[in-house]
Design a binder for these strands. Structure first.
Lengths: 199, 199, 199, 199
DNA sequence: TCCTAAACGAGACGGTACGTCATGTCTTGTC
DNA sequence: GACAAGACATGACGTACCGTCTCGTTTAGGA
C-alpha cells in the first residue's frame, strides 16, 4: 500500500501486475496462468502466491492498478446530457479493447470467486455508484428528475440495460443505442399523459 | 431429442446429463470436471466427448433438459401486473436454488465460450425475448405503453436491472425490489409533467 | 511382468527405464528428477507415477532391467580360486563405471526407502546370496572349507569387507586387495598352529 | 571447537546443532531441512549457511558435537575378548537408537557428498582405525594373531561384516551374531589342519 | 442364430497447470 | 557487524484434468 517505491517488494509487485495485464491481453483471462505470468515476469511462483490468493485476485488488482482515467461525472447542469456523456465514456472504456475484454473477464471471475466479487464492489462498482448517486441527487433536488425517483435504483436502471446488452445479449453497444436507452429510462415506457398547455 | 427411448444412446445421454446436474449442484460449475462426471455416471470419457464439445455445452444441455416450467406470459389485460407476475416467476426460477446457481454458471460460461453463448441465446434468451416482445406489442397496441416505446429495448430495460442486481451488485432480488424497479421503468426517471385536468 | 511386448504399456515402461539409466549416468542419482526423466522420455509424469511409487523404485527397476551378465559362480573344483574369480567379476561390475555409481546410488537409496531396500534384497542381494551359499556348501561338503563354517555368515564375511572398503573407507578396490582379503578370510587372523608332519 | 563459551557465535552454533539433532531424530535425516532447523532454532538461514556449506556438513558436525563416549579399546591381554567388547560397544552405539539412525544417515550422506565423506573419515573413521590397528599390532607382537596378518586389512575384515549386515542385508546385529563373526574371522573359513600332538 | 459394426467402460497417454516446498542468495532493519 | 526475519528466483514435487487414443466387451440389427 504505502510501499516505499523503489523497494524490492513494490518492484516485484509492479512487474507482476504489468506482466499480468500484458499476458491477459494476449491470451485472454481464461488461458492466463500464474505459471506463465511468473515465467515472463522473471518472478518465482511463490512471489505471486505470497501476494495474491488466486488468479482472479491478481487479475483484479492488475486492472485496478491502471488507475483508469477516473470516470468522473461532468456537471453541466443538464443531467440527461451529463449522464449520456458519462455513460458513453464508461462504455468506451469498459466494453472496448484494450480494457473491455479484461473487465468482462473480471466480471466473470467475480461470479465464481466471492473474494474477487467483494473486492470489485468495494474498489470499483461501489465508488462509481456513489458518484452516480451524488450527481443524480443534485439533479433531483434541482427538479431535473422525478421527485419520486428512488436513487438506490439508479445503478440498476442506468447500468443494468448496458450490462445486459454486453453480457447476456452479447451485442455491441453503439452510442446511438446508449442514447435510446437513456431516453427511454427518462421517459418511462408507460403511456404518456397528453401534452398539457403548461407542458 | 427424438432419440428412441430405450436405446442405449439415449440412456447414456440421460445418465450423463443427470449426473452433470447432480455434480454441478454439489461442487459448483467451476469445480465440475468431465472426468468426475464420467466416473460418477459410470461412463467413459469418450462417450461424453462424443456428444459434447465442451464442459459448457454439456452443462447447458443438462440445464435445458430440465424443461423448466415454461415461463409463459400471462395475459390478464393489465400489462404492468402481467409483467410483474412474469418477472417474479423468472426471478424465482433463475436466481434461487436449485436452478439459480446453475443458471448463473451458464451465463458465466457463455462469456468464455461463444458456442455456449450462441446456444443459450438461441434456445433460451431468444425465445423468452420473443414472448416478451409479443406481449408488449399487444399492450402497446392497446395503449397501455408509450407509443414511442421501442420494443427492441424491452429486454434490456426490463431484464437488465435484475441481471445487474444479481451478477454485478450481487444483491438478493426481493419481490418488493422487483416491483419498485418495474414501477420506475414504467414511470421513467425524468421529471413528471404536472397533472392535467384530462390526466 | 508378462506384458505382451509391443503393447503400449511395455513400450512406455521400457522407454522410461532406458531414459532413467541414461540420465542417471549423466547427472548422477542425486540430481536425477522424475520431471527430467519424463521430459526426455517424452512421457507424462503421471505415466511414471502410475508405475513407480518413488524415484528410488524407478531407479532400482531400471538397473535390474539391465539383466546384467549373471554373476554365476564358476565351479572349477577349487573354491578359493572360484571365489576370487566371482568376486573379481562382481567388483568389476558393481564398483566401476558405468554401473558402479548407479549401484552405489541404489544402495544409498535403500538406506532411506524401505521399499527399495526390500526390493533390492529380494531381487538382487538375496539371489546372489543363495548362489554363493550353494557353491560354498558344496565346497564345505568336499572338505575345502572348515566343517565349522556357518554358511549364513558367508555374505557378511566375504562381501562385507569389500562393501566397507567402497562405501565407508571410499578406497578403490584393486584385484590385489581383493586377493589379500580373500586369503585372510580363508586363513583367519588368529595365530597359526605350527606346521605338522601331516600338514 | 575452541569457541569462547558465552559468545554469541558459539551460542548460535550450539543452538543450531542441538536443533539439528532434535529434528533429525524426529523426522529423519532425509526429511530434515535447513529451513526447518532455522525456524525451530530461531535462527536466520543465513546464520546456518555462514557456518556450514551443506546439510550434510551441519549434520555431521552436530553428531560429532555429541562427543559420544569414546570408543576406547580395552586391553585385558586377551585380544579376542577385547575385540568382542569393543565391537559390542560400537554396535550398541552406532546401530541402535538414538544414535544409530543418525549415524547411518551420515554414512549415506557421505556417499553423496565428498566433503562429508572426508570429514567423516578424518574425524571418526580414521581415529577409530588407528586405535584398532594399534591394539591389534600389540596383540600380533604378543603372538595372539597370525604373524602374517596384514593390519591394513583390519577394519575391512572386522568392521565390514557388520556394516554389511546393517546397511545391505538390513538385519539387526545381535551380540550372539557379533561373536560368531569374530570367531569366524579369527579361525578363518578354510579347512582346518588336523590337530597335532603339539596342538 | 450368428455376424458385424457401432457404442461403450475403462483407463493409458502426453500435456499443462496447479499450489507447495526447499534450495541458496539477497536485503532490511534490530540489537 | 552479527543477527532474525523473510523476500526472492529456481526448480522439483506429486496431483488433477484436459482431450486423444487404444483396448476388449457388450449390444443391436440384419443376414
Amino acid at each position: 500500500m504505502a510501499d516505499k517505491r523503489g523497494s524490492r517488494v513494490a518492484d516485484r509487485t509492479d512487474a507482476i501486475m504489468r506482466t499480468t495485464l500484458e499476458l491477459g491481453q494476449e491470451v485472454g483471462y481464461a488461458k492466463l496462468s500464474i505459471e506463465a505470468v511468473a515465467a515472463r515476469a522473471g518472478a518465482g511462483k511463490h512471489t505471486i502466491y505470497r501476494r495474491w490468493p488466486s488468479k482472479g485476485a491478481l487479475f483484479l488488482d492488475s486492472l485496478l492498478s491502471l488507475n483508469e482515467p477516473e470516470l468522473n461525472y461532468p456537471d453541466t447542469g443538464d443531467i440527461e446530457a451529463d449522464l449520456r456523456e458519462q455513460i458513453h465514456a464508461a462504455v468506451d472504456l469498459l466494453s472496448k479493447p484494450p480494457l473491455g475484454p479484461l473487465y468482462q473477464a473480471v466480471l466473470v471471475e467475480a461470479q465464481q470467486d466471492p473474494q474477487v466479487a467483494e473486492a470489485l464492489n468495494e474498489r470499483f462498482i461501489g465508488p462509481q455508484e456513489e458518484k452516480t448517486i451524488a450527481r443524480l441527487r443534485k439533479a433531483r433536488d434541482q427538479g431535473q428528475l422525478s421527485s419520486d425517483f428512488d436513487l438506490s435504483l439508479a445503478m440498476a436502471l442506468l447500468s443494468g440495460p448496458f450490462y445486459f446488452q454486453v453480457l447476456i445479449a452479447r451485442q455491441p453497444l453503439t452510442r446511438e443505442y446508449v442514447d435510446r436507452v437513456i431516453e427511454a429510462v427518462f421517459a418511462g415506457i408507460g403511456p404518456k399523459a397528453p401534452p398539457t398547455a403548461g407542458g
